[in-house]
Computed example of a mutant assay.
Amino acid sequence: MTSYILCDTDSRHLLFPFALTRPVADCRAGIFTIREKWEHALRQTTSTLTENYLSEKFPLEENEDNYFINSALIPNKDLLDSLHQLKKEESLFSENTWLASRCDNLYSFRKSSGFRKYEYKNPFILIQYPWDFIRFNEQLLCEDFSLITKNRTSFKINSSNHIFNPENIFIEEGAELNGVTINAFKGPVYIGKDAVIMEGALIRGPLAVCEKSVLKMGTKIYGTTTIGPHSVVGGEIKNSIISGFSNKAHDGYLGDAVIGEWCNLGAGTSCSNVKNNAGSVKVWNEREKRFLEAGKKCGVMMGDYSRTSIHAMINTGTVTGISCNIFCA
């Protein structure tokens, strides 16, 4: 029997704060988490090799034949073909970046530096820094939309809604939409099971509103945004990921941002995503103890269980840890 094991490498620490509370594979990018993408592609469950303090909740499961896969790696067809061409005690690399290995057990994997190496030369996505989640979110959201809707029929949208390009919109069972404007010309719109989009919401694709999430009245979403499951959002949102079980339920702007799970943004909270001089945004990396360039636009990277007070103003490229309380002086 074969096992597929998603492995956190030492580079997981570059994904502070999101990898503090979960393996990298359980971070959301697009509609699915990285793990969900692999399990969909492999048609099989996966297990995890991660830090000791996370391993009780995310245990390793070995069999007689094991594929160890970089957990920050996004699957694609060419990559899967190359993965399954590996024989035992062989590894797949892209230059100096380890992608995958095949071997008998964890003990053998620990000695994989002696494995025969094959070079992977085709394009791939590796999530290396927190802002990579938003950098690749449009591509991954569109790919996930194709996967989740393949050979399926959307539930009908009632006539109270104002719809553009309906063939690029998919509504799951139990979702409620009334008096909503949806523009899917720029990208697909996915509305998950039992999600609620309240009247007056203005939304553009690409967009995913996952299971049991709520968009409140008058919400404006400008596209390239993922609202994870069981979240409540309002105000203005652009090019952002709300991982799940989090609230941004009131007015305020969120742009080019990643919000962890179980977070709450108080009423009027807004984040800046552009420097006044239009220069490159520099973001603090806790592992390397230095600032790294994140591109022209980068909002807040907020760790799980963090909260802001009402009318909190968050600077461009802010990074918070987990369980932080942010408030105005």
Rank of each mutant, 00 (worst) to 15 (best):
L202K: 14
P130Q: 09
L202D: 12
Y120D: 12
E173H: 14
N168K: 11
V283Q: 04
I69D: 06
K57D: 04
G187V: 03
G179R: 07
I197R: 00
E39I: 11
I197H: 01
E261D: 09
S160R: 15
G252Y: 01
F133M: 03
V232C: 11
V233F: 04
F124R: 00
D104I: 08
T181C: 08
A312K: 02
P123Y: 06
S213G: 05
L92D: 07
K77G: 08
V189T: 06
D132V: 12
P59R: 12
E61D: 09
L147C: 14
P188L: 07
C263M: 04
T320N: 09
E51L: 06
R102L: 07
P75Q: 06
S113Q: 15
L207S: 07
A100S: 12
D251N: 13
K297M: 00
L86I: 06
K289I: 05
K193R: 13
V274M: 15
V283H: 02
G252E: 02
T45V: 08
N315G: 14
Q85A: 13
F58K: 05
F18D: 01
I259P: 01
G234P: 02
P17L: 06
A195T: 03
K220I: 11
L106T: 09
N315I: 09
V209K: 04
V24E: 09
T2H: 09
F136P: 06
G114A: 12
C298Y: 00
I191K: 11
N178M: 12
A249C: 04
T269K: 10
L80C: 10
E236H: 05
F136T: 05
A278S: 14
L141P: 03
S240R: 00
E293G: 03
Y107C: 13
L73W: 01
I125N: 01
E167S: 13
L99I: 10
K186G: 13
S213P: 08
R152E: 10
A29E: 10
L80R: 10
E293H: 04
N151M: 10
I69V: 08
R204G: 00
Q128R: 15
E95W: 06
P229N: 08
T50P: 02
V214S: 01
T308D: 00
R102C: 07
D256Y: 02
K212S: 15
G299D: 07
E62I: 12
I221H: 04
W98Y: 13
N247T: 10
A29L: 15
T181S: 07
V214P: 01
T226G: 00
G187K: 03
I326E: 02
N165C: 10
